[in-house]
Amino acid sequence: MTSFSEVTAERQIKSGPLSHVSVELGHLYMEDFQAGPDRLRRQFAAVAPWLETVRRSWQSRTPGGRARISTCFLIDDYFSRFSTPSELVPMILTAAAENDLVIDYLARESACAEADGVKLAKLVEDRLVPDPPPGTRGWRPPTHETGWLANGTRSPVAGSGQAMKTAVRWEAPTQNAKRGHSIFVDVELWNDDSRGRTWSCPFLAAVWQLLRLGLLRNEGQLPVQPVAVDGGFPTSWDNLPPVVKLNSSATPFSAYTTLSVLSTRFLQVELAVRTILSQVSVDEEVLKQVLSRSSDEDLRLEEELVDRISYVFL
């Protein structure tokens, strides 16, 4: 038997190390920063017991209690720029240490749009497979071409020309997978203007979840590698790596599951994130890799992506 293969005809998908759970200890936006370090201290004080609960729960599920739990913290440098890494990062780390919290990884929100020259948001946009309303039998213009993504059918709107002559009766929007009644969600993914495209906060947060779940690849490679920063933090956000490894003994950044401990003001954002993630088709090879690794560890992973993501809202 002879065999012949050509390298470019085969797909090669890298796999990365995974923790059991990636715990997000918080998001920091401009308004949080303006509210001063006390607000951050209070937030970390509220988060600490939950992290302990997660730790204990995973320790009881893993052989020998060897749970791999990594913590992360996200700073917004995309929607507004404030302070500098050299000023802000030590302040965050101090507030965390005061509550016995260790932040393993620090990420910049703009990294979810583009990191190390890879347009992560574009990778995710191309992988959107919109939830089809009943009656969808083949190709139709993608619902996200407008920059909006829904979980159902929108209310009809009065059109132009002939349609204007007859009044359009209001009809209810419907959720595709409704059980009895609908909860219709329509999410703005981006807007474009003369300065280019601005991705929405839920869209970047969806990318953030996919990064933490280790499910993104660019040409088969892992797009973001956490980097340690030696010799102090830079004075410009652009000089800070997309994901910084702060704790040299941390378990891997990406994990089988994620938990985010967030203020309830993020509830709507996270509903939008889940609406988006329910319509992202992750590469089948990557999904298989993660599933086979988890089953090697005797861990039963939820089949659906959104079921691997959980929250504590405070």
Partner: peptide, 9 residues
Amino acid sequence: RLPWSHYLA
């Protein structure tokens, strides 16, 4: 019909 994430899995 189930949620769309079921079918994407």
